[in-house]
Amino acid sequence: MYKRDASAFPWNSLVSGYAELGLYEDAIALYFQMEEEGVEPDMYTFPRVLKACGGLGLIQVGEEVHRHVVRSGFANDGFVLNALVDMYAKCGDIVKARKVFDKITFRDSVSWNAMLTGYVRHGLLVEALDIFGQMLQEEYEPDSVAISTMLTSLSSLKPALQIHAWVLRQGFEWNLSIANSLIGVYSNRGKLDRARWLFKHMPERDVVSWNSIISAHSRLPEVLTFFEQMEDAGTVPDSITFVSMLSACAHLGLVKDGQRLYSMMRGKYRINPVMEHYACMVNLYGRAGLIKEAYAVIVETMEFEAGPTVWGALLYACLLHRNVDIGEIAAEKLFELEPDNELNFELLMNIYSNVGRLEDVERVRMMMVERGLDS
């Protein structure tokens, strides 16, 4: 299959090529063939193979390669150790990743970012912030993707402000992914002025930027203006854009605008609706009291079976507008789809209660008892 060679050089070229192209299975297969041929991997082979293991999530193979690393005398090689940290983090063993990281005598930006990204990926934000702080003390530059992901995962504004301050000092504020994340952070914390300022001053914007600012204004009439500006700027809306826009129209009671946007999505932009779009349309009609139209979306328009989000939107609309007949239909569907969801039973009980059908309230309550849902 491959020409035999006593040195690892030609093999490394092939392994590296496969790994860089994302052909991870081929890279790993070639690594095992090297072993069969008696060709010893070197400091260049191991990182590529470990990258392939991380890409496929093959931790057992990665552990075997790790043992081979130790046997071959590369257990202290910085490039190999960086690759091991990355592999363990991607494969889900963040504890082993940290153990390897702690063994690295001379860490570089790759080491730090591998550990930072691993913590962020696993939602360990306290640990990620700790690593981030250490990186700043050591004057290493955190990876922009890791920073963006960390920003969007934060539940508190204070660390986000600290990260933003560092971004400003480094001159990275207009990195596209970081700026988009900052817009999301400030929007989610109700700091719309800051979000708008960032958006206005961005030197470049992509569809994520527009989606972020549109989502930030999903409860405000200005959302329509931002959508128009998005089109005027030549940015093509995507499926996420229309979920945000249709949801905004539903909450703002803009039925005609919602209908227009839905038609535009399907016609002008050739986007086929998914479950979230249908749920938004049901919500749009339902909140406006157009219960029959909302029900018609499900039974006449949808090209696949409606899920809990769609039927749930209809049931909630029936509660708002005291529609018992369609509410019962929606509830029965939800009882099949989510037999253990107490909220659906409670919504139907409230619908009955609002119209004085107390016997039906008791009947649904007994259903909950029988299913072990009555707390």
Rank of each mutant, 00 (worst) to 15 (best):
A97N: 14
L176M: 07
F172A: 06
F9P: 12
I28A: 13
Q170C: 06
S218A: 08
C249H: 12
E36K: 13
L84D: 01
A313E: 03
Y295C: 00
I213M: 14
E139I: 11
L348A: 10
A296C: 03
N180W: 00
T301N: 14
Q137S: 12
L261W: 08
V85I: 15
R260C: 08
P10W: 07
G286V: 01
L252F: 09
N344W: 07
S247Q: 04
N175T: 08
L373G: 01
R365G: 08
V355K: 10
L14P: 12
V299S: 14
Y140T: 10
L347Q: 06
V207G: 06
R219W: 00
L50P: 10
L125E: 05
E139F: 08
L151C: 04
L161S: 02
Y88L: 15
F132V: 11
S177V: 15
M230E: 04
R121L: 14
Q134E: 15
L343S: 12
G22Y: 14
V310M: 01
N188L: 01
L23V: 02
V110I: 09
Q134V: 13
S16E: 15
W210K: 05
M264V: 10
V145K: 04
L182Y: 00
E64W: 09
E342A: 15
L224P: 01
M368A: 11
E127H: 08
H251T: 03
R189P: 01
M34H: 07
E342G: 14
G286F: 03
M115Y: 07
E228F: 04
A146E: 06
I291A: 13
Y278E: 04
D26G: 09
D360E: 15
S7K: 14
H122T: 12
L254H: 15
V364W: 02
S144R: 06
T149E: 10
V85M: 15
G55W: 08
R98L: 11
M34E: 09
L81R: 09
Q162N: 11
A279G: 14
S263N: 15
E303F: 01
G307P: 01
L116S: 09
V120F: 09
L252V: 11
G62P: 11
M264G: 06
N188G: 02
P339H: 03
K90N: 13
M34C: 08
T241I: 13
V361H: 06
L334I: 03
L81D: 00
E336A: 02
A313T: 03
N350Y: 00
Q259W: 11
N76L: 09
